[in-house]
Design a binder for these strands. Sequence first.
DNA 1: AATGAATGAGACTTCATTCAT
DNA 2: CATGAATGAAGTCTCATTCAT
Lengths: 190, 190, 190, 190
Amino acid sequence: MERGDKREAVVDAMLEVVAEYGFHGAPMSLVAERANVGAGTIYRYFEDKDAVIASCYQSIEERCHAAIRERYPEGRPVRERFLHVATVVARHFREAPRDLRFLQQFHDSPYGADVRREKMFGQGDKDLVRELFEEGRTQQILKDLPLPVLFALSFGPLVHICRDHAVGFLELDDRLVEQTVEACWDALKR
Amino acid sequence: MERGDKREAVVDAMLEVVAEYGFHGAPMSLVAERANVGAGTIYRYFEDKDAVIASCYQSIEERCHAAIRERYPEGRPVRERFLHVATVVARHFREAPRDLRFLQQFHDSPYGADVRREKMFGQGDKDLVRELFEEGRTQQILKDLPLPVLFALSFGPLVHICRDHAVGFLELDDRLVEQTVEACWDALKR
Amino acid sequence: MERGDKREAVVDAMLEVVAEYGFHGAPMSLVAERANVGAGTIYRYFEDKDAVIASCYQSIEERCHAAIRERYPEGRPVRERFLHVATVVARHFREAPRDLRFLQQFHDSPYGADVRREKMFGQGDKDLVRELFEEGRTQQILKDLPLPVLFALSFGPLVHICRDHAVGFLELDDRLVEQTVEACWDALKR
Amino acid sequence: MERGDKREAVVDAMLEVVAEYGFHGAPMSLVAERANVGAGTIYRYFEDKDAVIASCYQSIEERCHAAIRERYPEGRPVRERFLHVATVVARHFREAPRDLRFLQQFHDSPYGADVRREKMFGQGDKDLVRELFEEGRTQQILKDLPLPVLFALSFGPLVHICRDHAVGFLELDDRLVEQTVEACWDALKR
DNA sequence: AATGAATGAGACTTCATTCAT
DNA sequence: CATGAATGAAGTCTCATTCAT
């Protein structure tokens, strides 16, 4: 095992265990076990449990960030850019239900208190998407609503259907993603 | 204190404490204290901690249920009925941020696992709203999307903005509720 | 077991265990066991381990204090009062080797840091003995030395021989106590 | 760094850390760090932690021993020899408060159990001082008291004032050392 | 020989639950 | 019925020691 692998293994294990059992049912001992690491080892890489959890969040955020950036249609119309972001986010969390489950547990728990200031998808993306929304609003393509409302109209439903997919309520294929994203656009556009 | 008052006091206290500190930071001793009840007394009314938490959920659900039923425009057009439900739900959680916060912590935690089968607002309402959506879909007023997607498009954003309001991101007045609800309708309608 | 007995049992157990094995070798689990008390019970009476240890100190201090006060020859000459105090202290710790051992471990450990400001036998007695020494110095009965030195000349040797007794180096009978106390007096007097 | 330097560095570091933070607060990792040595390296030179601590004691003992031997007035009268020893010891620990602090923590802790059989300043000196006291007693210059008591009357106060000095209770200049040593002599002499 | 990452036993402490009063 | 003191299992974290490099 190479340097840094253990750190990553711990983060992954925590992510997995929290997604599965919640912050309850995520004792450090279990995390250590799943990471194939001694219990004490965790504390060489992290200050305490909270730090591991915070790292899980960062890790998720980065993955989402990366997905959005990839093939982002810079300079293209607002509508096209929105469709990209929304589609990518939905697909991303459809493929990574663990990330989604962790995120939801994290977000409104006291653990997430520090990060809650930052909107849904972290700093970098937020700026990107915020830019997108502000531009759309200025050009009178989008409804004249506060940014948080625009965020809510876009990502509220997407996260929702990804969860429904993860739980088995819904078979979320690409066609359905597309349709839902279009519906979100209907909510946003003038 | 009359019979049943203690039970209610316990549920309220748990709701309060969980909303404030999360499932962590909600020891039975603190709940007992806030309920002005002996720690042992709780166990005369509830099997265990999980049962208290489940009762909190039920309690929230009932309040939301009641709000929707009140002045529900039975027999009126789909659009009108939707606007009623959506507006009432948004206002309700705007006024009861504690309920909202509990709900969010509960919903995707393992505690909520049993209830997750039942959609957003519990059995009774679900049927009501489900009916509404099915009818709208049949009449080709609403998009031809699976029910969970219709739910997501409606309540995903609403819950989202209520939280933003609770956290202070947003000043959610009646005008804004109305606008958001209209936007949700745009997402739903053909 | 009556109210308060558990608290006392815990203090006694800690005193015993620390005297025997040092602050190392004094895990809360062992203390609980010796006190015939559940591990968690300790924390109903004490904030944490340090608080238990602090209580041990107080307890010892009080016993010593009481011994000195008992039949204290108030108003009698300096010499007589000194002989009383010194004799009583020596006998006291001869009879309570556990107290002595704890005290020595405590005194110069970081645990005792807070209390170190207060001289050897705590506030009340310190004042009593300080008074005695100051009076003796003023009346030119005692050497003109700083108070801490007078304390050192008196109690340094006494504590020393009590430990030697406890360890078995010395058979400390009343005769020997008397002789040692007289020798201390020789060190103090002009 | 030459051979043996590491060993010494470890002993010094342990001495320092224990003096400062007590046996608690003296993890091997911190000792290794202060010694500029890998944690594992310590175990090339010492069996275990206890062995390091024992070496600290030996080291202190040797320094004290050396101080006493230096310019020891061999063959001179008992009184003169006593004054030398007592003065040297007091000055030594005044100058080496770390040694004193370690010694006090060590002496009555279980760590010191093995060494406790050997009186105050270790084997070599003990013999020297024992000889001195026995001679003085035989010649009826000193009081007819057991050796441990003579030790107590001499070194009990001295150690005491050195600590008071270290803690800041007392400004222990050479004049005061001299006076205290004289007072000790008063306690010893017939 | 030296290192320091890794280990896991064990320390302190919390808290859901029980039961004598 | 109500209480809250008591319990002990379980959680988080530390640290003496080992061993592959």
